[in-house]
Amino acid sequence: MSAEPVESAKSPSRRRRARRATSEELVEAAIRVIGREGVGAATTRKIADEAGVPQGTVHYWFADKSELLEDVVREIVDRLERTAAIGGRRGGGTTEGDLRAALRAAWDEVAYDDPGTQLGYYELTALALRTPSMRELARNQYRGYRDLAARSLAPVLEGADPQRAAVLAQFVAVTFDGLLLSWLADPEGTRPEQVLDLLVDVVLRAAQDTVTDTAD
């Protein structure tokens, strides 16, 4: 009995998969590889293997690995934004409820994700900061976090001074980011629910003061 033929890189079935592979699928494959092995090990070859396509497919969709990682960062921010939006709709119709629900939903998104994937995001930031050609990637990542926080806070900051509102949005973004890193390092010693509740209380008080000062 002859052995089953091994599928070659040029076989019709593999070519069909290559044609079906989209940039979004390659981004998802990159996230899985980063979660398992870290950013340093996420070569275009491994990402292609994860997606089940020839390595050339990655270079068809992306000029280089940096461009692929930029889309990974966008997907990170988009996931949080989608989850925060869902959380906001579940907030019971009150501004405070919307804000609490949005932050809790965003936290659940990261807390129930694979810890290796979340750690990979920090590795991605560190790699970008150490690589001059990729430094803009880190800026875009944290700019995305700040923009997301600003959109989530927009209802409670209506009428506030724009510069103070931007600082408050940055405060929320860096608190959330630091909370996640603390939780990854020491999950038993971190109290995310209490921190998020306190964060909402501080934000609402600051928002009230900001709007009042502006009105005066």
Rank of each mutant, 00 (worst) to 15 (best):
R89I: 06
R146E: 04
L181N: 08
P192L: 05
I34K: 09
G159L: 04
R90K: 13
G56W: 02
R143L: 09
A169G: 03
A128T: 06
A102H: 00
V200Y: 15
L199M: 02
Y122M: 06
R143I: 01
D108W: 02
D209N: 06
L26E: 12
R45W: 09
D113L: 06
A48R: 00
Q194S: 11
T125C: 09
G91L: 12
S133T: 12
S182F: 09
A160Q: 04
E188H: 03
E109A: 09
E75T: 13
R104S: 12
A128Q: 11
A150K: 08
D108Y: 05
R19K: 08
E7T: 06
E193R: 03
E96M: 14
D78T: 10
T22M: 12
E75K: 15
T22Y: 03
R100P: 00
G91F: 14
G159H: 05
A63S: 13
P187T: 11
S66I: 15
A21T: 07
G88F: 03
G35L: 05
A9K: 09
R90N: 11
D49M: 13
A30C: 05
R205V: 07
L129R: 08
G88E: 05
E4T: 14
P162E: 10
G88L: 00
S133H: 15
L124E: 03
L198F: 05
G120Q: 00
G91R: 14
I34H: 10
L204R: 00
T43R: 01
D64V: 08
A166T: 10
S2H: 13
T44M: 06
A84N: 06
T125A: 12
I31V: 15
T210I: 06
S182Q: 09
F62H: 06
V211P: 15
R17F: 11
T190W: 07
P155T: 00
M1T: 08
A51F: 12
W61C: 08
G93R: 01
A173H: 02
R130P: 04
A215M: 13
Q163N: 14
Y121D: 09
A160G: 09
I76W: 14
S66H: 15
T43V: 14
P12H: 15
T43I: 04
D161C: 13
A165H: 05
W183P: 10
N140W: 14
L184S: 01
K10N: 10
T125L: 08
P192G: 02
T175W: 09
S23Q: 12
D113P: 04
R100T: 01
R139P: 13
A21Q: 12
E96I: 15
F62M: 02
D216C: 11
T210S: 15
S152F: 03
W183M: 14
G92F: 11
V202E: 01
A18G: 09
E24D: 15
L80I: 06
G91I: 05
Q55C: 06
D71M: 13
A51Q: 13
Q141G: 02
A173K: 08
A160Y: 11
R89N: 04
E188Q: 10
L127T: 01
